[in-house]
């Protein structure tokens, strides 16, 4: 029997998560730390934290449909871009404040996701992945030729006092956007937690992921449940897209509708641990920091894409349940060694 002092990090982590109220405590402490963080950081590091928050939220939104429902959505980034453009169009063309633009973008993407979800969610596996990827490509091409999106010239957002539509907020500064992202991200995590980990709805979603026929034969309306998850996850991506667009003030289809947006969400969720609350948080922070640090120290992001590819391979081969799986003890050191040995034998390295 080991004593308290003999416990490993993993043991302590498992003991902590085993407590009924552990998740609420972690969430509460995390929220307080995030709330005071900008006061301890420089503007540069506040921007880094802001970006990390956004990617945690985006990865969590993808995790809802990809991790919890098991539908590999390769077009999720399209909603990030559409959310950005709808917010911009409302602000530029209708001259409404940012808050109105964001709300309208959310509603627009809910309707769009519902319409897209009706035919695509009838597909599964690679067919669903290809259909959603094709949808995202079509949206990008459409944004490049439409006049209302600015076409190949892109779109510039109105800036300055009064454009946010939030009382008491003057000129939206770094702090405003930091807290905006914090609220959106914490809201997304709380929603995912209660929806997928603590409700009947979550069990239904996981049942459909594990065995759709069996779920249906128990009276679960798989079509309706999948569509709800898809719509919720897409609306969240749209809200982040709108918020990010207002922050960066200029958007172009080749940037906000780029396939790398979806790719990053997927690898973040995959690296952290699919179908878990903690996975996208860990994966989001790690991958975003990798992106920023490779840019900071190497001067460009050229090395970033090969590193991402390598990470995908390593994760899929050695730790399919991600960092969370390692912390939970689902993948041990021996499993990794065994996988390495098998791989080496396969390629005749040893």
């Amino acid at each position: 029997m080991g004593t308290e002092n003999d416990l490993t990090v993993r043991d302590r982590f498992q003991a902590l998560l085993g407590r009924d109220d552990a998740h609420l405590w972690l969430f509460g402490i995390g929220a307080v730390v995030l709330a005071v963080l900008p006061f301890a950081l420089s503007t540069f590091w506040t921007r880094i934290a802001l970006g990390a928050l956004m990617w945690i939220g985006l990865a969590q939104s993808w995790n809802m449909i990809g991790g919890y429902a098991g539908y590999l959505d390769f077009g999720h980034g399209a909603y990030f871009g559409v959310g950005a453009f709808v917010t911009g169009i409302v602000m530029v063309e209708l001259e409404l404040p940012f808050v109105a633009g964001l709300l309208i973008a959310g509603v627009f993407c809910a309707v769009l996701a519902y319409v897209v979800g009706v035919p695509t969610l009838r597909l599964s596996g690679a067919y669903f992945a290809i259909a959603t990827w094709a949808f995202a490509e079509a949206i990008k091409e459409l944004a490049l030729i439409l006049e209302i999106t600015g076409g190949t010239y892109g779109m510039t957002f109105p800036t300055g006092p009064g454009t946010s539509g939030i009382p008491l907020v003057g000129w939206p500064d770094e702090m405003f956007f930091y807290y905006l992202m914090m609220v959106l991200t914490l809201g997304t995590i709380a929603l995912a937690y209660f929806l997928f980990e603590h409700s009947e709805f979550g069990f239904r979603v996981k049942a459909i992921r594990d065995h759709e026929d069996a779920a249906q034969s128990l009276g679960i309306d798989a079509t309706k449940i999948k569509r709800r998850v898809y719509v919720i996850s897409c609306v969240i991506a749209a809200l982040f897209g709108g918020a990010n667009a207002y922050y960066i003030t200029f958007i172009h289809p080749n940037d906000v509708l780029a396939p790398i947006i979806t790719d990053q969400m997927i690898i973040m969720a995959l690296l952290g641990g699919l179908g878990t609350i903690g996975g996208p948080i860990i994966g989001g922070v790690l991958i975003f920091l990798l992106n920023r640090l490779s840019s900071l120290f190497l001067g460009n992001t050229t090395i970033y894409l090969p590193l991402i590819g390598l990470l995908i391979m390593v994760t899929v081969l050695f730790a399919p349940s991600g960092v969370i799986g390692i912390l939970r003890g689902e993948v041990g050191r021996e499993d990794v060694k065994q996988n390495l040995r098998e791989l080496a034998e396969k390629f005749d390295i040893l």
Partner: peptide, 29 residues
Amino acid sequence: VREGIATVPQGGGVFGTLTVEENLRVGGF
């Protein structure tokens, strides 16, 4: 299902990532 007819698909179709208790809970929705 509500009328009293339940199906067990080919191979049983357990929800593998859920616990046994959770499987029963899904059946009892």
